[in-house]
Computed example of a mutant assay.
Amino acid sequence: MLGGPQRLAAPSTTRLVKSRAKVILEPGHSPLDWARLTTSGKNLRGVDSMGPITMEEVKKHKSDDDCWTVIYGKVYNLTPYLKFHPGGKKELMRVAGRDGTKLFTYTHSWVNIDSLMGECIVGYLVPS
């Protein structure tokens, strides 16, 4: 029958997905370039030795040229990685000086943070 229920459009079951703007990385800042840098022997930590770090100390490192975050209780110096991040520096700055575990888990649950950022570990978070 014309106009019967079987001819009506089914309700949409698709989600509206917010499109992301493309981030163009500078030349020399590809994932392969990052892999080369992490195996170069260069000190990416920015500190002489790893140690216990309080959240108060992490909060002091929240600028473009000094950016730390906490992920799963480990403190990472994100500064050398800012220009390599496929989502752009702006996305990493959202967790600068903060615990970024929740956002990291939400957006990158499949990423092994230790293999990606292991050379940038500054220390381990301890209570104040």
Rank of each mutant, 00 (worst) to 15 (best):
N43V: 02
L37T: 06
I113S: 07
M93V: 03
G73R: 06
S128G: 12
S49W: 12
V47D: 09
W110T: 11
G3K: 03
V70P: 01
T39R: 15
V70K: 02
K22E: 10
P5R: 10
T38N: 08
P86F: 04
Y124K: 13
G87E: 14
V111K: 08
C120Q: 13
S128K: 09
A35E: 14
V126E: 00
P80C: 11
Y81I: 00
T105K: 12
L82Q: 06
D48N: 08
S40A: 12
L25W: 07
P86G: 04
N112P: 00
L2D: 14
M1F: 14
V17F: 12
T101P: 00
L37Y: 06
T14Y: 02
R20P: 04
K42E: 15
F104R: 01
N77H: 06
P31N: 07
V75N: 01
V23T: 07
R45F: 08
K90G: 01
R94G: 04
S19I: 11
T13Y: 14
T13I: 11
Y72T: 07
T101N: 03
A21V: 02
P11W: 01
T101K: 00
Y106V: 04
L37P: 03
S63V: 09
E91A: 05
Y106N: 05
T69Y: 10
W68S: 10
E56N: 08
S49C: 12
L32A: 06
D64Q: 09
C120F: 11
Q6L: 15
V122M: 01
D66E: 08
R15P: 13
H29E: 12
L37F: 02
R15V: 05
L82R: 01
T101C: 02
P80H: 12
L92F: 07
P27F: 04
R15D: 15
I113R: 03
E56A: 08
M117R: 04
G4A: 09
P127Y: 10
L125G: 02
F104E: 05
H29K: 15
Y72G: 12
